[in-house]
Amino acid sequence: MENVTPLGGDVYEIDTRLAGYAGITAGYAILGDRPCLVETGTSTSAPVVRDALASLGVGAGDLATVVVTHIHLDHAGGVGDISAMFPAAEIVVHEKGARHLADPSRLMSSARMVWGDRLDTLFGMLKPTDAARIRALGDTGAIDLGNGRQLTSHYSPGHAKHHVGLVDSLTGDLYVGDAAGVYIPDTGDVRPSTPPPDFDLETALASIALFEALGPQRLLFSHYGPVDEVGSILERSAEELLIWVDLAKQAKGEQLDLDHAVAMVDQRTRDRYARPAPGDKAAEHIEMLSGTEPNLAGIMHWLDRPEA
């Protein structure tokens, strides 16, 4: 299938085609004795993911595990659908996100407030998953991939308090979720991902430092794709966070409202990122999902907290 890319080590990238567009959100299939799916994408992406897994020979009864780095809808919105499509799969998530997969009502209510009518087009509805099928991870944990291979999970909040990174013991791949930002493969840029309400600078930097200390061979970004330049990308991820926080502090000091602060940050970071071509819909959707406004709103929210 055109949305399935082999990455070596029995790992396959699946473009989940968020809102129908390519190159925005990736899931990853790890094949072997106990096939595993890392990230489901959205609810509306579930049929795309099912068909991609089928093209790899993973049928309804074959998938052993579904694991998500965190419960934001672009990563885990399809968990309920995928769990129904693959009834033998165990669903693995950090303990701070587990209850929201079993009962998504509060999460979906919050998402509706943020996205309004766009919620249905972009994400669809996260459906409940039987709580008996959910395994909640602590700050560390292990997922059996068969033949001695495993994913180890490492608590990495900062982007979200229910976020984990995952290391493949065979390949050295590190599934970074959103904790290292958003990687743009066409340009090599990495941008912050700091939405409210959970962003915390110290915790986010500590998560990036943890990722570096784990010594991965490769980073697998949910947005978007594999990166071999581990050290330089993690270094830039931390650098971008510090630059954006400094700019947010300046905007706050000048008592700018969010719209004016966004314009200021866009102007001052213009030379840091390649500009998308006019009409590039995928780039437009990446900007909408992790653009200046939501990222700056998350930083401002953190700056308003006494501990910041």
Results as ranks from 00 to 15, higher is better:
residue 84 A to T: 11
residue 95 E to V: 12
residue 89 A to I: 04
residue 101 L to C: 10
residue 126 L to P: 06
residue 95 E to R: 15
residue 112 R to A: 15
residue 101 L to P: 03
residue 93 V to L: 04
residue 65 T to E: 06
residue 86 F to T: 08
residue 104 P to S: 10
residue 129 T to V: 13
residue 102 A to R: 01
residue 81 D to A: 14
residue 137 L to A: 12
residue 84 A to G: 13
residue 104 P to A: 12
residue 80 G to C: 07
residue 108 M to T: 01
residue 64 A to L: 03
residue 97 G to C: 12
residue 108 M to S: 08
residue 127 K to G: 05
residue 117 D to L: 11
residue 63 L to F: 08
residue 130 D to I: 01
residue 80 G to P: 07
residue 117 D to V: 05
residue 70 H to N: 14
residue 126 L to E: 10
residue 127 K to T: 12
residue 86 F to R: 07
residue 66 V to M: 14
residue 83 S to F: 05
residue 75 H to R: 03
residue 82 I to T: 06
residue 104 P to L: 13
residue 82 I to D: 07
residue 120 D to F: 08
residue 67 V to L: 10
residue 99 R to Q: 14
residue 94 H to Y: 12
residue 90 E to S: 12
residue 79 V to G: 01
residue 114 V to R: 11
residue 121 T to N: 13
residue 116 G to S: 04
residue 107 L to C: 11
residue 132 A to D: 09
residue 98 A to D: 11
residue 75 H to N: 13
residue 130 D to W: 05
residue 67 V to R: 01
residue 80 G to H: 13
residue 61 G to S: 12
residue 92 V to A: 05
residue 92 V to G: 07
residue 60 A to T: 13
residue 95 E to H: 12
residue 109 S to L: 14
residue 73 L to C: 07
residue 71 I to H: 02
residue 110 S to T: 10
residue 73 L to Y: 06
residue 124 G to Y: 15
residue 135 R to L: 12
residue 84 A to Q: 14
residue 91 I to S: 02
residue 130 D to R: 09
residue 102 A to K: 00
residue 118 R to T: 13
residue 85 M to W: 05
residue 125 M to V: 13
residue 127 K to W: 06
residue 116 G to E: 00
residue 75 H to F: 08
residue 72 H to V: 06
residue 136 A to L: 02
residue 88 A to Q: 13
residue 103 D to P: 06
residue 81 D to T: 09
residue 110 S to N: 14
residue 81 D to M: 09
residue 114 V to D: 00
residue 80 G to N: 12
residue 97 G to K: 07
residue 65 T to M: 00
residue 123 F to L: 03
